[in-house]
């Protein structure tokens, strides 16, 4: 916005003919010009929608409705009191709580194990990263088949080894954990790659120093060098993992359709806004969703602070 406005103010064009604008003016002109498409799109696709969203969240607007009433905070009050929405929030948080520690721990373990491999590293990197690139919605369909109560191979294995078969995709208490397992399967390779990058950034002479200092055992090496040196990476992984987990949608859409008490935040928003067209209410839910994301992002700002001491 400001850049575009500044462009108008730039007096260069009004100068008498033959005048060559100063270096600084030309630079400002070029800069404003270069930034203009981005500024326009930023306004049109992020800022204006955001403002509209917040305004909308205080109204009872429904798509196609003729008159709109100002509700004040009613939408928010309704959301907080709505058992379905509350379940969506608690389901989402449970999902995050399952995926976050598992995603960090498994990603770290995989990275530590793969880091020392030489010949087989490429294979493991590929294997663990494959789920990250695969279209999640298609893989969700595959999981649906794998976990099928009657013809799925997972239950066939359980039966073969004498364990009770499980209704992974219809037993309510198993639904969120099942979704979380698929979420983990999807995110571990991503985290592993981040941790691998972090590991290769640790100076080798620190390990030498630890060895000379008597901290050469594997536990000591990990506690004295690896873990503290990975702290910035770990924080970054934690933030991205929680945000990814918080946005869980695809697997829910395929596997449960939000039924059987598996509402999650985004799916609830999708239903309210784009199936029932209760725009005002969905906008309020979206604002709440955004607030959650902002909380996670605050940790990232903290991370930037900590970086300073590491150089």
């Amino acid at each position: 916005m400001t850049a575009a406005a500044a462009l108008d103010k730039t007096p260069a064009l009004e100068r008498p003919a033959g005048f060559r604008p100063s270096r600084a003016v030309r630079e400002a002109l070029a800069g404003s010009l270069f930034a203009t498409p981005a500024v326009v799109l930023l306004l049109a696709t992020i800022l204006a929608p955001l403002i509209a969203l917040v305004v909308l969240s205080f109204t009872d607007y429904e798509l196609g409705a003729v008159d709109v009433r100002w509700l004040g905070g009613d939408n928010y009050r309704q959301a907080l009191g709505d058992p379905v929405f509350r379940r969506a929030v608690s389901n989402t948080l449970l999902y995050v709580a399952l995926v976050l520690p598992g995603g960090i721990l498994l990603g770290l373990l995989a990275a530590l194990a793969v880091h020392g491999r030489k010949k087989s590293r490429g294979f493991y990197e590929t294997a663990y990263f494959l789920p990250v690139t695969a279209t999640l919605i298609a893989m969700a369909a595959v999981w649906q088949f794998l976990l099928h109560p009657r013809i799925g191979p997972v239950n066939a294995v359980l039966k073969a080894v004498g364990l009770p078969e499980q209704a992974f995709l219809s037993e309510p208490s198993l639904l969120i954990p099942t979704l979380a397992f698929i979420g983990l399967w999807n995110v571990v390779g991503f985290n592993m790659v981040l941790f691998l990058a972090g590991l290769s950034g640790i100076p080798k002479d620190l390990y030498d120093a630890a060895e000379v200092d008597g901290a050469g055992g594997s536990v000591d090496r990990f506690l004295t060098v690896t873990w503290p040196m990975l702290a910035p990476t770990t924080l970054f992984v934690a933030v991205t993992t929680s945000i990814t987990a918080f946005k869980v949608f695809d697997t829910v859409a395929v596997l449960t359709g939000g039924k059987n008490g598996t509402e999650v935040l985004l799916y609830a928003i999708y239903l309210e806004g784009f199936q029932y067209f209760k725009m005002g209410y969905a906008a309020a839910l979206t604002v709440i969703f955004l607030l959650f994301l902002l909380v996670f992002s605050v940790f990232q700002a903290v991370k930037l602070d900590r970086r300073v001491h590491y150089t």
Partner: peptide
């Protein structure tokens, strides 16, 4: 013997100080 058991101390070229401590 491990470095520690040899009772030697090393000063490294880049000092190898633990940056987080």
């Amino acid at each position: 013997m491990a470095p520690r058991e040899r009772n030697v101390a090393v000063v490294f070229q880049n000092y190898a100080l633990y940056p987080h401590m």
